Amino acid sequence: MISLIAALAVDRVIGMENAMPWNLPADLAWFKRNTLNKPVIMGRHTWESIGRPLPGRKNIILSSQPGTDDRVTWVKSVDEAIAACGDVPEIMVIGGGRVYEQFLPKAQKLYLTHIDAEVEGDTHFPDYEPDDWESVFSEFHDADAQNSHSYCFEILERR
């Protein structure tokens, strides 16, 4: 099963200049909980913004210009990325925008964090048809001392 995991502000903004323009430790914990011990696929820009392999996960970098870091697996196509994951129950696609666009048609599940923030962004989550998805989990949280904005975790499964 292919799943996408993303944090989205208003207007589906997911990033600005290779960074997330908010401070939500709870979302980072949600991300870790849902990706640990699963292969993660990301684009080169996302890889560069993280700066290191995510521990406890097979890191697969999709790029037309593969790098030389041998701590991760470099691939040039969506099919190659899927094959590099091996026989696993769930593959997690973690961004960025172009990689989400490439995998959305193949995805069966979306793990979304909806952030109540209007922020400037240069990267967006692809538009998706809500009628194609069923919400199977939703959990709202107010902003607090650690988390700069209110947010809602949601899991959607393709109908």
Rank of each mutant, 00 (worst) to 15 (best):
R71K: 06
I60H: 06
V88L: 12
L4C: 01
T68F: 12
H124Q: 15
D11G: 11
G51C: 04
H45Y: 02
A9F: 02
F153T: 09
D127I: 14
Y151N: 10
A83K: 07
V72R: 07
N37A: 05
S49T: 09
D79P: 07
A143F: 09
E134L: 11
A117Q: 10
L8G: 02
K76R: 06
A83C: 10
R52V: 06
E48F: 13
E80F: 11
I155W: 12
S138T: 11
T35L: 00
E154F: 14
D69R: 09
E134K: 11
E48N: 07
R52S: 09
Y128L: 06
K106L: 05
E80S: 05
D70K: 08
E129C: 10
Q102K: 08
I60E: 02
M16K: 03
V119R: 15
E157A: 09
H141D: 02
P130V: 13
D142P: 12
I94M: 04
G15W: 00
V40G: 07
L156M: 15
D131N: 05
N147Q: 05
R158G: 09
C152T: 15
A19Q: 07
K38V: 10
S148W: 01
G67H: 04
V119P: 08
Y151S: 11
P126K: 12
E154I: 14
R158D: 04
E101P: 00
Q146I: 09
K106N: 13
P25V: 03
M92Q: 12
D132Y: 14
D144K: 03
W22T: 01
S63T: 12
G56H: 07
Y100W: 12
G86D: 07
N37T: 06
D132T: 13
I41V: 15
E139M: 07
A7T: 03
F31I: 00
S148G: 00
K58M: 06
E17P: 00
I5M: 00
L62M: 12
V10A: 14
V13Y: 00
A117M: 05
D69Y: 10
L28M: 04
S150M: 05
V13L: 04
D131Y: 12
A19W: 08
N59E: 07
P21Q: 03
P55M: 07
Q146P: 04
L156N: 06
V78F: 10
E129R: 11
T68Q: 13
